[in-house]
Design a protein around this nucleic acid. Structure first.
Lengths: 202, 202
DNA sequence: TGTACATCAGTGAACGCGCGTTCACTGATGTAC
DNA sequence: TGTACATCAGTGAACGCGCGTTCACTGATGTAC
C-alpha cells in the first residue's frame, strides 16, 4: 500500500541527519564515513545536507557534540542511581563514563580523535567542558577543595580521567580480552575498583 | 651535478615503504592516508608497493607491528635506565609506555584503532603480545605471583595498563591541556605518580 | 669466464569508483495586504 | 478569507579529483652450464 508520505520538506532533517550520521559512523567507521552515505540513510538527496551543515566537518563536529552531551547524561544517570555519599558519587561518575564509552565506541573515537574534525567548534567545546566538569566536581567533592587550586587536585583529576578513559579504550580495542568473560556485575566491580585506585583515600 | 643514482631496483623498498607510510600517516592522518601518497614519498611508482604488500591493509598491519616493537623497546629502555628495584622497574615500564605514546601519537592510534586494519595479522599479534608482556611481567614481579592466576592479578594489570594508556590518549587529544605547561621533570613526576596509583602498595 | 635464460622488482597507462561540492531548478511554506 | 510573492528546503545532474588495483611491459639481477 506504501502510504509512505513523501513530503517534500522533511520536517527536521537536521536531527535526522545527525542520527543517520551516527549509524553511518557505526557501520562504516570513521575512515569510510561519507556525507553521501549519510544523506542516503536519511532518505534524502546527497545535496540536501548542505542546507543544514556547511560541510562534512561541521556535521561531524555536531555529532561529536551530541556524543559529549550523551556522555554527561550517562555520568549523571549513574550518579542518581548511586549512594549519595561523596565517594560513591565519584565512583558512579567513573562507571557512567565507562558505560557510555562501551555503549558508543565509535562515538568515543570521534570525540577524542582528531580525524575529520576541526578543533574550534564552540558547541562542541562547551559540551566537552560540561562532561569534564561532572568528573572534576565529583573529585572536588571527595577532596573537599577546588581541585584546580592545588597540584594534588590536578593529579587527582588526571588520574581519574586517565583510568576510566584508558580502560574504556583498551576494552574497545579488544586488548583486555578477559573482560569479555566477566558478567555485568563482575565488570562493574572491576570498574569500581579501578576508579577507586585512581583516587586513593588518604 | 645530480649524482642521484637512479637504480632501477631500490634495494630495500619494503623498509623504505614502511618509513614512508609512517610519514604519510603522521602528515595526513589515518583518514587521509593513501598508498599512492606513500609510494610517492618513497620515490617509487604507485604500483610498486604491490610487490611487497598485498594491499593497503597489509602495509598498515606491518606498520602497526613496527609500532608495537618500538613500544616494547621504549619500555625496556626506560627500565634499563631505572633503579633495579621491582617497583621502580614497574614504574619505569609505565613511563616508557607514555613516552612512546607521546612521541608517536599517530602510531598509537593506528595500533589501537581498528581503522583500515585487519585483526588477524600474526606478526602484529606477536609484537602486541610482546609489548603486553613487558607490563605484565613488571606487575608480576612487584606482586610476586603469576598475575594470571588470580583475579587480583588481572585487576592489577588492567589498572596499570588503563592508567598509562588513558593518560597518553588524553594528552594526545589535548584534553589534559595543563600537562603542556609542565616541564619534563614535572611531567615525569606526574606520570610516576599516576602509575603508582594503579598498583597500590598493600 | 661467458652466455642464455628465468626470475624478480620496477614502470606507466588505464580501469572503474565513490567522494564532496556546486549549480540551476522546483516544490512547499509563510507572510503581507 | 484570498492572493501575490518572498523565502526556504529540497532535487538531480554535473564537475573534477584522488583513490586502489590491474595489466602488459621492461630493465636488472642471479644462476645453470
Amino acid at each position: 500500500m506504501k502510504t509512505k508520505s513523501k513530503a517534500y520538506h522533511h520536517g527536521d532533517l537536521r536531527e535526522a541527519l545527525l542520527a543517520a550520521a551516527e549509524q553511518e559512523l557505526i557501520e562504516k567507521g570513521a575512515d569510510a564515513f561519507s556525507l553521501r552515505g549519510t544523506a542516503k540513510r536519511a532518505g534524502v538527496s546527497h545535496a540536501a545536507p548542505a542546507h543544514h551543515f556547511k560541510d562534512t566537518m561541521a556535521l561531524l563536529n555536531a555529532l561529536a557534540a551530541v556524543g559529549f552531551a550523551r556522555l554527561t547524561m550517562s555520568m549523571k544517570e549513574e550518579q542518581q542511581r548511586a549512594d549519595p555519599g561523596k565517594r560513591a558519587q565519584f565512583i558512579a561518575s567513573g562507571v557512567g563514563y565507562v558505560r557510555f564509552a562501551l555503549d558508543n565506541p565509535e562515538m568515543l573515537q570521534l570525540m577524542f580523535g582528531t580525524a575529520r574534525r576541526s578543533s574550534n567548534d564552540p558547541e562542541l567545546a562547551r559540551n566537552a567542558e560540561a562532561a569534564f566538569s561532572v568528573l572534576v566536581n565529583a573529585v572536588g567533592n571527595v577532596r573537599g577543595t577546588h581541585v584546580f587550586k592545588t597540584e594534588e587536585g590536578w593529579r587527582d583529576v588526571a588520574a581519574s580521567w586517565s583510568m576510566v578513559h584508558g580502560y574504556a579504550q583498551l576494552v574497545i580495542s579488544g586488548k583486555l580480552g578477559f573482560v569479555a568473560r566477566l558478567d555485568l556485575e563482575e565488570q562493574r566491580n572491576l570498574i569500581e575498583d579501578l576508579v577507586a585506585r585512581a583516587l586513593p583515600e588518604h
